[in-house]
Simulated scan of single mutants.
Amino acid sequence: MSLNSIFQYFTPKDKKVFFPLFEQAANNAVVMATILVEAVNTTNPATREDLIRQIDKLENKGDEITHQLYLELGKNFITPFDREDIHQLASAIDDVADNIQGAANRMSLYRIDDFNEHIKKLSDLILQGSIELEKAIKELRDLKNKRNIADSCIRINSIENQADHIFDRAVADLFLYETDAIRLIKYKEILSSLETATDMCEDAANVMESILVKNA
């Protein structure tokens, strides 16, 4: 066997394995976030319930993609970047999807049909963060456009900071104006899941920044 054949054997087919899976996971999060925005803006309860069911199905799809990434991580001797970074990035994207689903399910279970501006703004920020996340992940294939990845990570950090501010304001308003303790708890849990989704976008951005540093 020639030396080239040996290298070919041990080199992972990352473009056929890891990167497509990451891109599928990121795109799945974007679709979920898009549907979430539709759900909090519709005034039709039946439409909202249908949208939430779609989010459930997509979260299951995301779990399958994440599981496949973990399987490939175990099977491949050589990986396109650090194994820990692959695991953390996959987990962060999965957590974005989990928290979108968590917020949507609470809206349904708690029978919330009055979506205030705080919930709508946080949902919009999740969508913005997911879109930037997908953009950055698409650039990971060859790392030629590192500036584009860095710019998306910066925007994700800014989005997360905005989400923190909105969340703090939303919780403050709940304690100031909401007199129904049960309703207050319901809204706070939904807001918390939404804000955590933006945190997970930032976690993914932090992993990508780490990858950029290691591949500088």
Rank of each mutant, 00 (worst) to 15 (best):
A181L: 07
N161G: 08
L184I: 06
I166R: 01
D168F: 08
Q162S: 12
L184Q: 12
E178W: 06
A163S: 13
Y187T: 12
R183L: 14
T179P: 03
D168L: 11
Y187N: 14
K188A: 10
L174I: 09
E189R: 11
A172P: 01
Q162Y: 05
I182S: 08
D180T: 07
Q162D: 15
A163Y: 00
D168W: 04
R183I: 08
E178K: 08
Y187A: 07
R169H: 11
I166N: 04
F167Y: 14
Q162C: 06
L174E: 03
D168G: 05
A163K: 01
D180K: 09
F167W: 06
E189M: 11
I185A: 10
D164H: 10
I166Y: 03
L174C: 10
L184G: 07
V171G: 07
I182M: 08
I185K: 12
L176D: 13
V171F: 05
L174V: 09
R169N: 13
F167C: 03
I185Y: 13
A170R: 00
V171N: 04
A170K: 00
I190R: 01
N161V: 06
D164F: 07
D168Y: 10
Y177K: 07
L184A: 13
A172M: 08
I190W: 02
F167G: 00
E178V: 08
Y187M: 15
Q162R: 09
